[in-house]
Design a binder for these strands. Structure first.
Length: 590
RNA sequence: GGGGUCGUAGUUCAGUUGGUUAGAACGCCGGCCUGUCACGCCGGAGGUCGCGAGUUCGAUUCUCGUCGGCCCCGCCA
């Protein structure tokens, strides 16, 4: 038997018992005479003592132990000598007096110390991920991940959801992200795609009468990576039949409340605030606003129209917008700092950044001369300017104004330390538009996805003014992080075909890509809808880490490389031949 | 595809306004040490300054390129 107990779980209850422990040598303190080892396993550390008085041979053996050796010790649990207890250790009152030692496996000196506090570059950590994962603080993230997935499953099971698997080798679909392709050997020249989401299959499951489905499922998207985006990631994916949007939001809110309080004892505000897409854009310049701080955007179109400021008036005449935000207590910023803000604004597409400082006597800036005193006072009132504030204005096309002020708001919020990181601020964003117009592709694209149902009252607009149609779609946003999104789906074939048409997908294309869905919709498809949560993002949020790489056991770098295995890599030409694949260009040798 | 930033012992970093022998801490190796827990003390080893080219009498330092990590824009239904 390798062990009778976990190292970190030994307590005074085992006093005087003989125990056997197996684990890694965390630290060695060799005093020549007595030698101490902190022995580590998943559950924690315990001090084991090698004393020559107990066994000269074992003490000799212990002298040769090194970091990360895997050993097995047998000995008696004893109270530590008075005054030598270690209060920072859960096992700090006891120690193991070792009578027998087996070196199960020696270890090379690790490239970095297995210590929580040790700061190591991420690339080294990922190359030696198995060593990095030995660190308690890193393991903690994965324990949290496990607990969260269990809590979610528990909730969904209790609410009558069935877990079902959907294929990973599936059909490539147009729209959306790039697919990862997998060549089919049995069908030369054809390819499977790895799913970007189980979307179509879960809808088919509803048509099958599963009624409620969920899956904690891996999804794949061949797009560029970010701190919150990996090529493979995990979603909590679910779908329900015979529900409306309200029922889904209510149930999901219950789920989030429950699992957040279960795994992290977080009490979220109840009910979650809701914002329509339009409100979110108007007030925060973003469809995933961080509502933990103010600095809200204010509309100044009306005031600007009455001013003599050409820049603003021209924009308005062309149908643009003028909005502003109040950078609290930023009047003290130097010319240089304001220039930096301007650069930031321009990098987001603004042509410039107008500003005014609020002082005791009113607004001060080169541009105030274009505004009558009463207009200046209106501006100050609208933005609630107090002495010492800096007012920022952007005039441009609506989308640019939102983008620029939305990102300025965020960076100012961070810079001015307005964000209380202990607060969790959830939010439903609803009433998304169904479609947007893609200027480069010169066609409509789906905001959520092509299967989201239009709002019933907007159905007539599908013909007359499609961009005005709102979708029965919703996002869950927490602290500015998009944690999940979903919609009521189209369950009538005619409407689905109509939406494909609006998206510029020909009938032939629709049939060849989604024919199975269009057909299934004609066999008694129930009204249905669902949602998918970004599980990695949720864990990262709860763990308080910036990057989802911290909560994925074996993540990839920004170039999509696994530093541990060196995937992706070249393959044997024979493999390619079997798959009828020929490389067009030789790849550079690594 | 684009912008930014970083790359110096095993690790985290300092440094070099272009110049003989590139430093610190931790880690590692050896010795001493019977109550430590970031043990202590003494000694030691360890470097293609990411890679390549250019400028120069001389490049880790300057220039250009390149590779890689990270952050961001585009992209991500």
């Amino acid at each position: 038997m390798f062990r009778t107990h976990y190292c970190g779980k030994i307590t005074k209850a085992e006093l005087d018992e003989e125990v056997t422990l197996s684990g890694w040598v965390h630290r060695r303190r060799d005093h020549g005479g007595v030698t101490f080892i902190d022995l580590r396993d998943r559950e924690g550390l315990v001090q084991v003592v090698f004393n020559p008085q107990l066994s000269e041979t074992v003490h000799q053996q212990a002298h040769g132990l090194r970091s990360e050796y895997v050993i097995q010790v047998t000995g008696k649990v004893a109270l530590r000598l008075e005054g030598t207890e270690n209060t920072s250790l859960s096992t700090g009152e006891i120690e193991i007096h070792v009578s027998d030692l087996v070196i199960l496996n020696p270890s090379k000196t690790p490239p970095f110390l297995i210590e929580d506090e040790e700061e190591v570059s991420e690339s080294l950590r990922l190359k030696y991920r198995y060593l990095d994962l030995r660190r308690a603080s890193v393991q903690q993230h994965f324990i949290l991940r496990h607990q969260l997935s269990q809590a979610v499953r528990q909730f969904l099971n209790d609410n009558n959801f069935l877990e079902a698997d959907t294929p990973y080798l599936t059909k490539s679909t147009p729209e959306g992200a790039r697919d990862f392709l997998v060549p089919s050997r049995l069908n030369p020249g054809t390819f499977y795609a790895l799913p970007q989401s189980p979307q179509l299959f879960k809808q088919i499951l509803m048509i099958s009468g599963f009624d409620r489905y969920y899956q904690v499922v891996r999804c794949f998207r061949d797009e560029d990576l970010r701190s919150d985006r990996q090529p493979e990631f995990t979603q909590i994916d679910l779908e329900m039949s015979f529900v409306d949007q309200e029922e889904i939001l209510t149930l999901m809110e219950k789920m989030i409340l429950k699992v957040f309080s279960e795994v992290q004892s977080l009490q979220l505000p109840e009910p979650f605030p809701r914002l329509t897409f339009q409100e979110a854009m108007d007030r925060f310049g973003s469809d995933k606003p961080d509502t933990r701080f103010g600095l809200e955007l204010k509309d100044l179109c009306d005031i600007a129209r009455r001013s003599d400021f050409k820049v603003f008036r021209t924009v308005l005449e062309k149908g643009g917008k003028v909005k502003g935000l109040n950078a609290k207590a930023c009047a003290k910023l130097s010319r240089k700092e304001i220039e930096n803000l301007t650069d930031e604004a321009m990098s987001r597409g603004a042509k410039g950044l107008a500003w005014m400082k609020v002082s005791d006597i009113g607004l001060e800036a080169p541009i105030t001369k274009f505004f009558k005193p009463e207009l200046l006072e209106e501006i100050r009132k609208t933005l609630e300017g107090e002495a010492g504030d800096l007012l920022l204005f952007v005039a441009d096309k609506e989308q640019v104004v939102y983008d620029v002020l939305g990102s300025l708001r965020l960076s100012l919020g961070k810079r001015l330390n307005l964000i209380d990181s202990s607060v969790f601020q959830p939010l439903w964003v609803t009433d998304f538009p169904l479609l947007a117009f893609d200027g480069t592709e010169k066609r409509h694209v789906a905001i959520h996805h092509p299967f989201a149902a239009p709002m019933d009252e907007d159905l007539p607009l599908l013909e007359s003014d499609p961009l005005k149609v709102r979708a029965q779609a919703y996002d869950l946003v927490v602290n500015g992080v998009e944690l999940g999104g979903g919609s009521i789906r189209i369950h009538k074939q005619e409407i689905q075909s109509k939406v494909f048409e609006l998206l510029g997908i020909s009938k032939e294309d629709a049939d060849s890509k989604f024919g199975f869905l269009l057909e299934a919709l004609q066999y008694g498809a129930p009204p249905h809808g669902g949602i998918a949560f970004g599980f990695d993002r949720m864990v990262a949020l709860l763990a308080g880490v910036e990057s989802i790489r911290e909560v994925i056991p074996f993540p990839k770098t920004q170039k999509g490389i696994c530093l541990m295995t060196d995937a992706p890599s070249d393959v044997d030409p024979l493999q390619l031949k079997e798959l009828y694949i020929k490389k067009e260009r030789a790849i550079k040798a690594p």
